[in-house]
Simulated scan of single mutants.
Amino acid sequence: MTNVQLGAPNFRIVSTNVSGEASSRALFGVSYGLGMAATQFALIPLDDERTLYKAAISALWTRFETENGVAEGRKLALVNVRYDSESINTFFYTKVTTVVVADVVEFE
């Protein structure tokens, strides 16, 4: 269990608007985003990725570490997390993309 106390300025904003993205493509199917979920039903998947939100968060942390150093061992938290999904559907081809954007704070 984690207890965060924001009664004093015990944190600093390390990075803002860090984003991560993940996509899945397929043939003969349909993709759609509904709320937080992005879903794809298709006969022939072209990518192995099925957990788009998890992959987008992983890409977000990779981008963060590229710009700000290693995250492991630091007291970091994602705040102001926003997500979006986009889908492209044609007669033969479908693609769904999930994007996660967040600010990163570090606690003392």
Rank of each mutant, 00 (worst) to 15 (best):
A22H: 04
I44N: 00
G20R: 03
M36R: 14
G20K: 03
V30L: 15
S23K: 11
A22M: 06
Y32A: 11
E21G: 05
V14N: 04
N17D: 05
G33H: 08
G35W: 06
A42K: 03
A26G: 15
A22N: 03
I13M: 08
V14R: 09
A26H: 12
G35Q: 05
V18W: 02
L43H: 01
V14P: 07
A38D: 13
G33M: 08
Y32S: 06
Y32F: 13
Q40V: 07
R25G: 12
R12Y: 09
A38H: 09
I44E: 00
N17C: 00
A38E: 14
V18N: 01
G35K: 08
E21F: 02
G33T: 13
A26I: 14
Q40D: 07
A42P: 05
N17I: 00
S23M: 09
G35F: 03
E21S: 12
L27S: 03
A26Y: 11
E21H: 09
T39F: 07
L34A: 15
F28Q: 12
P45L: 02
S23G: 06
I13P: 10
T16K: 09
G20C: 02
A37Q: 05
I44R: 00
V18H: 00
A22W: 03
N17A: 02
V18M: 08
T16G: 01
S31W: 10
A22L: 01
A42N: 08
A22Y: 04
S19C: 07
N17M: 00
P45E: 02
A37I: 01
G29N: 12
I13K: 06
S24P: 04
A22T: 02
A37F: 05
V30N: 15
N17Q: 07
F41I: 13
V18F: 02
M36I: 10
I44T: 01
G20W: 04
A22Q: 03
N17L: 01
M36L: 13
I13Y: 07
I13L: 12
I13A: 04
L43R: 02
N17P: 01
Q40P: 01
Y32C: 11
S24G: 12
A42L: 04
V18T: 09
A38V: 15
L27K: 06
R25N: 15
V30A: 14
G29R: 07
S19Y: 10
G29S: 11
